[in-house]
Design a protein around this nucleic acid. Sequence first.
DNA 1: CATGAATGAGCTTTCATTCAT
DNA 2: TATGAATGAAAGCTCATTCAT
Lengths: 213, 213, 213, 213
Amino acid sequence: MTIISRKQREKEMRRRNILQSAEKLFYQKGYEKVTMNEIAQETELARSTLYLYFKNKEEIYLAITLKGSEILKEILTKNFEKGQNGLEKIEMLTKAFIKFYTEYPLYYLSRFYYQVPFNQEYQKIDDLNKIRTESFVLVVKAFQEGIDDGTLQTDQDPVKSALILSSLIQNVLNLTPTTKMHMETYGITHDELIDYTIDFIIKSVQNYKKTNR
Amino acid sequence: MTIISRKQREKEMRRRNILQSAEKLFYQKGYEKVTMNEIAQETELARSTLYLYFKNKEEIYLAITLKGSEILKEILTKNFEKGQNGLEKIEMLTKAFIKFYTEYPLYYLSRFYYQVPFNQEYQKIDDLNKIRTESFVLVVKAFQEGIDDGTLQTDQDPVKSALILSSLIQNVLNLTPTTKMHMETYGITHDELIDYTIDFIIKSVQNYKKTNR
Amino acid sequence: MTIISRKQREKEMRRRNILQSAEKLFYQKGYEKVTMNEIAQETELARSTLYLYFKNKEEIYLAITLKGSEILKEILTKNFEKGQNGLEKIEMLTKAFIKFYTEYPLYYLSRFYYQVPFNQEYQKIDDLNKIRTESFVLVVKAFQEGIDDGTLQTDQDPVKSALILSSLIQNVLNLTPTTKMHMETYGITHDELIDYTIDFIIKSVQNYKKTNR
Amino acid sequence: MTIISRKQREKEMRRRNILQSAEKLFYQKGYEKVTMNEIAQETELARSTLYLYFKNKEEIYLAITLKGSEILKEILTKNFEKGQNGLEKIEMLTKAFIKFYTEYPLYYLSRFYYQVPFNQEYQKIDDLNKIRTESFVLVVKAFQEGIDDGTLQTDQDPVKSALILSSLIQNVLNLTPTTKMHMETYGITHDELIDYTIDFIIKSVQNYKKTNR
DNA sequence: CATGAATGAGCTTTCATTCAT
DNA sequence: TATGAATGAAAGCTCATTCAT
């Protein structure tokens, strides 16, 4: 039994290694530009060996994206529960995004390269979408709670606000080259921008008529 | 002389045709997935003829992006001048983005595919960056003006707010598949989201202590 | 116009060259074992150039087979008309097969490698089958005529006899390695076997009660 | 000793299993299209285990072919002895082929795929050829006997007739797609064709001057 | 100026075979 | 003995780019 599990562990390890290498490369160059050869070299395996672990390039990509979405969902769920009211929940969720990005920056590629033309048949895409929806629902819930308990502005739409929140955070975490350029021009660091954005979000959604922060 | 200029005009025409076809295709399928063959067919030219007008595929992409950035800058500049104070200028600039997106949707690809790994040598990238910077500066200026004249919240950083504004608008105009999915789940239309986002931005940056909108 | 036709001729020439090389290789090694690379080398073209002339390997194979079937049909048709009665027509058709084989031996591969797993969709296969059927019908007709005019045995089935005739001729023209071995063992040449087979066929189908050959 | 022989029996068993699976697959899809993986799966063994029993794919093929040739030879030998004169022997041999084909259809692949480019070095090919020659010699002998005893036409060449006989039978048992198509066109069944061919053969070789069948 | 033709480099993927365990 | 893992070699095919006309 120990033998089996060792082998399995090793196999799982290899799989993870492949995913790590692929993540890194996808992140650096984008899905299309990365070749199976590069992934193989990065993993120090033969190109053909990759096909023992993944059916094709798409599956590698999907595995990474799925994993990332799962981790994010987990972090979001935990943080959601830590908030005592709607506003706090929004704060905690926002920080959850930051935490995810900081600890697993590579997974962020998922947002950028989600454009990949998957064979629609893939049932795995459904899995992915399910998880992402579950994550998003948390944000909506937090908004709804805050609207109900009066910690957030009561005239806002929870869904639309959730969409805006997600957009903002993703953008500020995963900067485009142009944005980077603007930041350099004005000497702004990434951390500064992140902090500012968090403040901006909170200020924009909280019920300033009620709370005095 | 007239002959020369006619020829030149025709040449310019062809160039534009190529760019139009390419824009459309890049927009539909993404830079990587578009082949020179497709661009040629769309333009009704031979594949090799494209190379008389552009050094390679990258240059076509760059030309489109540059053109789009120029148009955007122009619209922003015009609208900037229409605003009487900082807040109005921010409003006008926000609407300028919408206008640009509505009238030249194809150029929006630029944001998404800006990731294309250009040979750093390209001097054309500098041109592009220059124009984009000029556009961005306008937004910063508007914020500064509003902060100075008291129509915008005085404790905000004009540059960081400009970055957030740009991000938000771009994201809300050019939706990711995931965002689209969330919108479908909750039955939200694109126009609704755009309107909501504009309101959100204005509300977030204006000096609510002073103005009563 | 001459320019166009020259170019077209040259293009047609290349196509033929490719087909010739492919024929030779298919004949020598069998469809599966022949690579596009080999065909390219044999034709002194780049591998990718082949794809300008044929969509894929299957199409090359089909083109050869189709061409061969067309030539055979033509020869059969001509010879069919030369025979004055059924028996003579059978003789002429038999000789037509020999002639075809002698002049275009490579096309004989068609019989052997017809097993190739074509995508059923191919409409070209229908074309091929049509021509082959037309050829076969000629043989059936000849038998029917001979049965009717009494030069062939009257108690035979024209279709089944036609099937046997075709089989025999094809086999004797295109020898399997085992058959070759047997021939070597007994010191029999290919021409001897062909002659003997022709005699055998005629003797077997003719009306010996009537004719005195 | 019993232990050893049990082991040996088991080993022999495995070998046979592999051959059975391979036969089936070769028959269905052709040598080239069958992968070692498929053979392994069909046998419920690991891919690499096949290599303990056979040096490579070719050897599997050869083993099947050899086995088939041995069985055929045996059946031919038995039937040869049952015939009382040359004509009867030819009849019995013809029926032997049919019997072999009916009972061991899979082995028939041997004829079709004999084209496989074996490394000439193989000594096993000599074994195969020896057996096939022995089978063929039987047919020749039967013809010779019939010629000598007057039951077969006396002016025929025993070897050449034997070659024709073999060809005819093999072809009629193992139909090409084209032949199948012709048969469908005219609504002829395989059994009908087989029966007709047997009659045809007998009628063609027997001494009609002497016998009155 | 325009193009048809050609190509080299590179892609994803398959598969027979080897080898350490 | 049996196998899972690994791999090299090769396959078919695509595409941006070049070049002679």
